[in-house]
Design a protein around this nucleic acid. Sequence first.
RNA 1: GACCCGUUCGUCUAACGGUUAGGACUCCAGAUUUUCAUUCUGGCAAUAGGGGUUCGAUUCCCCUACGGGUUGCCA
Length: 438
Amino acid sequence: MSAVRTRFAPSPTGYLHVGGARTALFNYLFARKHGGTFVLRVEDTDAARNTQEARDAIFSGMEWLGLDWDEGEGKGGDFGPYNQSERKENYDRWFEVLREKGRVYEDDGAWRFRFERKPITMHDLVCGEVTIDYTDESNTPDMVIRRSDGSYVFHFVNVVDDLEMQITHVIRGEDHLMNTPKHLQLFEALEAQPPLYGHIPLILNPNGSKMSKRDVGAAVGDYPRQGYLSAGVVNFLALLGWSPKSDEEIFTIEDLISRFSLEAVNRAPARFDAEKCAWLNQQHLLKLTPEAFAEAAKPFVEAAGLPVDGDYPAVAATVREKVRLLAEVPDAISFLLSDELSYDAEAVEKVKGNAAAKGLLTALADDFSALPEWSLDTAKNQIGETAKAAGAKPGQLMFPVRVALSGKAHGPDLGDILALLGREKSAERLRSFVGKLD
RNA sequence: GACCCGUUCGUCUAACGGUUAGGACUCCAGAUUUUCAUUCUGGCAAUAGGGGUUCGAUUCCCCUACGGGUUGCCA
């Protein structure tokens, strides 16, 4: 087989959505796996619906996901231009071939392609052998390939471009399965070898309806904003419709490249599960070094108006194992970066339910002030000492201290909190919290 | 309507025609952590229904139901 060439061919009419991203991913994985070439072609033949924002969203989305293309926008290549809007001469030339062969005829100013009336069998890389009968013209009317304004429709330009760009494998959504016989007929009329096709199942909403624009989780551009790592999203998308055929499921893009195969792609559509996507993201977050985590979370913390100098890297590191999305970080550490505390009502109520808490917290504040030296260990140990001195179990005091210092029921390790806050602030927050318990 | 693809725990999925139908997410219960999270252990939970073929069917065939797709001078 000649060298593998795949392509992703989006039309810039909206943002890049997860379905398109997964199609791009599978084409990318397949090309990389086989040492082939991945082409990015923009199908911008519908001038009325195309927008510059949509073009930019495609490029930035692909870049964010790490799906670097070899030919296309910004990369050049021997088969350009890679925008269909700039390829009219190519279409005119091939249209002329069809006209000379008598395969097209005029209809109301438009030109229709005359199908051969016979059953068309395709050998889909994912779906297997599928036959569509083109014998009955009323079911499969000859299709317009050139509009009355002289422009060409999707089916024709798509085929001409795949032909000229020497695409060997077309991996696309199942919504194109019924289009494939049309494309096959075009290739045959053009006397060209068609690529191999693989149709992957669509992604559905959690309720089973078709996932489209505007649905939750549909826009790739939203993921970075919510604090997803591209590694997490790529991992999740890969598992939607493809299986490694093993119990493993945490994969880097390199892992995916080496394991990917079209044979392992499912035929049934998959539903989008935000919970699992977030969990996978957490798994990839866990793989970051504390420094890398702090750096990744930085934009979110800055956007929340919190300072990211001084202790910030150490502060961020305390919640590395406690968040699923980076967008959760500012909330999780704001009490360490700012003195403005907001108390979680439920957590405070829980402390109020503990009759001994007030006395214990007051005693601890005093003991903190009296501590000869202040360190993570001495401070943390003092909690136990103070509790025991009052005849209470250490565990009884841990939660109230957590709420007093952070205002929350969940957060970093108590020792980390004490060390970062320091002696004065810790004692001060304990005392001020006691005042709120009345 | 017609045509095409599909149907395993709620979700993502595994299972040469022979498994107590496995794993993961979620949820619940324990353990660990003097706190939170992480981690670990255990639990709940599925072959859409009906016919065949077969010694034996999640697996092969047919029918029904359900879901999705296509049916444009959109892509």
